[in-house]
Design a binder for these strands. Structure first.
Lengths: 333, 333
DNA sequence: TTAAAGTTTGAATATGCTTTCAAATTACTT
DNA sequence: AAGTAATTTGAAAGCATATTCAAACTTTAA
C-alpha cells in the first residue's frame, strides 16, 4: 500500500505538500497536477486509521435506530447514507430495541469508536453518555422525536398539522364521526398526532372522547383497540390510525369485523409504505418526506462537523402530505 | 482520555504488560487485577484508531445489501449485528441498489476503510475489487445468493426444497392445478425456487407450462404476471408466489380479479413478514430462519478473521419452514 | 538450594498521517 | 529590478498502540 510518503517521492514534492493537497489546501497548479498523477499511478488511498489517530476524527457517523427492520428509519437512512458517503463518511448503524439501557451501551460503544457525529432515531429521553458527546463537541441529531433532557439539533415531522389535515380532509367530505387509533400520550410522536386530531375535532365541534382508541403504538394493541372502538361505536364513519404498525393492526380488526372499506368505514393511515397498496382497497395514507428528511440530517451533521463551535441548535419541521387512494369515501357525493 | 501508558503507571506495571493484558495474554494474577483496577479507575478505553493503525485491523465489518429497506436483509443483519457487536466489531452498512457498478464503488470505499470482513447480500456476480479483498485475506461471506466468479463462504437458503415442500403440501391436500409466480431464471434465488416447483410438479405428473407465470421479481411485474395467469387459467386452485414483493403484487391482482382466498384460490407466499398477517385471510407463508442465518454469518466471519489462512470455503444451507395460516384450503375435506 | 522455565521490564522501533517552524524558493507588484 | 507576499521544503514531534529483545526478575520443579 502506497503511503503519502511514496506519493511525495513519486511527485517530487515534499510530504507536507501532499498532506496539504489531500486536505484541500490550494497550492501551485503544477504541484497539484503532479500529486494527482502520482496518486493515480500508485493507486494511493489515504489511511483513515492513521489520519484518524492524528486528527481524532474517524470519518464515521453513528446511526442508532430502534430497529433495523423499521421501514421508517431505513427509508431515511437510505438517503442519509447517500449524502454522507459522498462526503466520505461511513455509517455505523446500530439498533437499540427501544431499550434505554441498551441505548446507553450502544452509544458508549460508538463513543469508544471515535465517531464524528451521531444520529438518534426516536429517542425520547437523554442517557448519560450523551454528555460525553457534548463535551467532545460531537454533533448529535435527533430524528423523529426530540430528546428530553438534552438539547441538540432536531429533525421532526410536523405531526400536529398532519393530523389536523387528515381530520380536515375527512370533515370536508362529510365525515363527522371520525375515530382515531392512537398510541396514547406516552410517546412524543403519538401525542402530537393525537393533539392535532383533538384540536381539529374541537374546531369543528365534533370532538367526543368515545371516538378515541388509545393503546400502545404496536400492532397488537392497535388491533384490540380498534376492535373495541368499532364494536362500541357503530356510528363511526371514518378511522384514522396513527402509524404504520397500528394501521396493520387496525386493518386486521376491520377485516375481523367484516367491515368493508370504504363503504362501511373510511380509513386513513399514517405512513405510506408497501402495505398501503396491497390491501384492498388501496389505502389513503399520510406520507412523510423521508428522502428530504434524510438529506437534511446529513446536511446538519456535515455542517456541525465543519463548525463544531456553533452552539445554536435548530429544530426543523417537515410537512407530511396525504396520498389519496381508495379507502376514503366522499359522503358528499 | 487515558492511554495505555496511564494505565501502566496507575497499575505500576510496564506498558507492554498492559498491552499484553488487553490482547488476551495471560499474566500473573496479581498484575491482571492491578491492571483491571487501573482501567476501571481511569475509565480507560482502547483507541481503536491507534490499534488499527498498528495492527492493520479496523474491527469493522462491511455489510452490503441491495436496499436498506429490504426486510429480509434487515432481519438478518439484526442478529448479525448482535453477535458481532458482542465481539467488539462494528458494522458498516451500505446499499448498492442492485447496481453492479455502484457495488464495486461501495466495496472500494469499504476497502479503503480497512474493513476486516465483508458480508454481501444478494450479489450474483463478482466485481473487480473482490480480488483485492482476497489478496489481503479479508474474509468475504455471500448471503442469499452465491457469487459467480468468486469463491467464498456462502450462506444460502435451501430454496429448492422449500419449493418442493410447498408443492408437496398443496398436493397432499388435493391441489393439482398449482400455479407459480416466478421471478424467472435470471436470478439464483428465483431459479432455484422455480426449479424446486418444477421438480415437484413433475414428480406428481401434474406439471404444465401454462401454470408458470414468469416476470421479474418485483411487485409490479408480479401483479401483471398474476393477472395474466389467472385470467387464462381458470382451473388453477392454488398459487405459489416466490418472494415477499411478488406476494404483494400477486395479492393485488387477486383482489383486482375479485377472487376470494382460499375459496376461489389457495395461496402460499415465500417470506413471512408483516404482510402475511394483515391480509384477510392471513397468509400461509414460507418462512426463512433469519435469526439463525444472521448468527451463522457472524460465526463464519469471526472464525475466518481469527484464522485467515484457512482457504476452504463452506456453503451452508438453511431450511425454510411453512407457517400455516388461513390462505390455503384443504380440498380433501 | 539450584537449575530451568516462565514473566516482566524498559527501551526502542514502527504504523501513516498532521502540524509546526524557520529557512528557502517562487510568484506577484509596483 | 527590487521588494513583498505567498508557497514549499525538510526535519521533527506527536497521535495511541503493538511488538521485539535482551536483561532482570519470579516461580516451579527437582
Amino acid at each position: 500500500m502506497a503511503t503519502i510518503r511514496d506519493v511525495a517521492k513519486e511527485a517530487g514534492v515534499s510530504l507536507g505538500t501532499v498532506s496539504r493537497y489531500l486536505n484541500g489546501y490550494t497550492l501551485k497548479k503544477a504541484n497539484m497536477e503532479k500529486i494527482a498523477a502520482a496518486i493515480k499511478k500508485l493507486d494511493f488511498k489515504q489511511n483513515y486509521l492513521a489520519k484518524g489517530l492524528k486528527t481524532k476524527k474517524s470519518h464515521a457517523i453513528g446511526v442508532v435506530v430502534n430497529a433495523l427492520t423499521d421501514i421508517f428509519a431505513a427509508s431515511i437512512v437510505t438517503s442519509l447514507e447517500e449524502l454522507l458517503e459522498k462526503n466520505n463518511y461511513e455509517l455505523i448503524i446500530t439498533d437499540y430495541k427501544n431499550n434505554i439501557k441498551l441505548l446507553n451501551e450502544k452509544l458508549k460503544f460508538l463513543y469508544s469508536r471515535n465517531i464524528d457525529g451521531i444520529v438518534l432515531f426516536h429517542v425520547e429521553q437523554a442517557v448519560p453518555i450523551l454528555k460525553e458527546f457534548r463535551k467532545k463537541k460531537i454533533p448529535v441529531v435527533a430524528v423523529d422525536t426530540p430528546i428530553s433532557g438534552f438539547e441538540c439539533d432536531t429533525v421532526l415531522l410536523d405531526n400536529y398539522h398532519a393530523s389536523v389535515e387528515a381530520v380536515e380532509s375527512l370533515y370536508e367530505i362529510g365525515h363527522r364521526q371520525i375515530g382515531i387509533i392512537s398510541g396514547g400520550q406516552q410517546g412524543y410522536v403519538g401525542s402530537e398526532r393525537l393533539r392535532g386530531y383533538v384540536a381539529a375535532m374541537k374546531k369543528y365541534g365534533i370532538f367526543d372522547h368515545e371516538l378515541i382508541a388509545s393503546g400502545s403504538s404496536f400492532k397488537d394493541a392497535s388491533y384490540n383497540a380498534t376492535l373495541d372502538l368499532l364494536k362500541n361505536n357503530h356510528q363511526i364513519t371514518a378511522l384514522y390510525s396513527t402509524n404504520y404498525y397500528m394501521t396493520i393492526g387496525a386493518i386486521q380488526a376491520i377485516n375481523e369485523l367484516n367491515l368493508r372499506i370504504p363503504n362501511d368505514i373510511s380509513f386513513i393511515g399514517f405512513d405510506d409504505y408497501v402495505i398501503s397498496t396491497v390491501i384492498k382497497p388501496q389505502l389513503t395514507a399520510v406520507a412523510q418526506p423521508v428522502t428530504k428528511i434524510g438529506r437534511k440530517i446529513g446536511k446538519i451533521i456535515l455542517q456541525k462537523i465543519a463548525n463544531p463551535s456553533i452552539l445554536a441548535y435548530e429544530t426543523e419541521y417537515f410537512k407530511a402530505r396525504i396520498v389519496w387512494r381508495d379507502s376514503v369515501k366522499n359522503k358528499n357525493i
